[in-house]
């Protein structure tokens, strides 16, 4: 997300970014609570009463964290580049996987995802790879669509077979 560069990033930088994000959440919460009424009416608190104070406390806490992080002199490395690469190696395919579900449905996307992941990180042979990447979505399909009658996201391929 915010940490795309593979260079070593200091913990302090991440602390600051996270604190700023929390602060923006706090501002959003306070803004919306004000809109719907954050007072104490005759018969108890209004809809925005609790969220308002939650937002306020979140704001105070995030500013506190922000100041602490900024005042820090030295800061350890948040994550070493090689380690971060490994995190990205699972994060990016997962994000792509979820994005493809929107287009081709969860079964096909899962098959591709399983196959690619196994191939890349496990160096498995074709046979093992195919077995897992066909079996897992297949079992899920039987379980959800056929037995439990729970519709999962499907794409053009499933439509072709009348699902």
């Amino acid at each position: 997300m915010t940490e795309k560069e593979p260079a070593a990033i200091s913990t302090r930088a991440i602390e600051i970014i996270v604190a700023l994000m929390l602060l923006s959440v706090a501002v959003l919460v306070i803004y919306d609570s004000k809109r719907i009424g954050a007072g104490w009416a005759a018969d108890g608190p209004e809809a925005g009463y609790f969220p308002f104070y939650i937002g306020a406390l979140l704001g105070v806490a995030s500013i506190w964290i922000l100041l602490q992080a900024m005042l820090q002199k030295t800061s350890p490395v948040f994550v070493a580049p090689d380690r971060f690469q490994r995190v990205l190696a699972v994060f990016i395919p997962t994000a792509l996987y979820i994005a493809t579900i929107y287009f081709i449905g969860i079964y096909l996307a899962s098959a591709f995802f399983l196959a690619l992941f196994m191939r890349r990180h496990g160096k498995f042979g074709w046979r093992k790879m195919l077995a897992v990447s066909v079996l897992v979505p297949g079992i899920l399909f039987l379980l959800f669509e056929v037995w439990f009658l729970v519709p999962l996201p499907k794409g053009p391929l499933e439509n072709l077979f009348g699902y």
């Binding site: 699972v90 997962t94 996987y97 979820i98 579900i101 929107y102 969860i106 899962s110 995802f113 399983l114 992941f117 196994m118 890349r120 990180h121 496990g122 498995f124 897992v132 897992v136 979505p137 899920l140 959800f144 729970v150 519709p151 999962l152 996201p153």
Partner: peptide, 24 residues
């Protein structure tokens, strides 16, 4: 091996997250 179980976990988590409210 982790490289088999990890993607399966991701798939099962995704299916699970979907089934809570039927929402992508």
């Amino acid at each position: 091996p982790f490289s088999i179980i990890a993607p399966i976990i991701v798939v099962i988590c995704s299916v699970g997250a979907f089934t809570v409210h039927n929402a992508l």
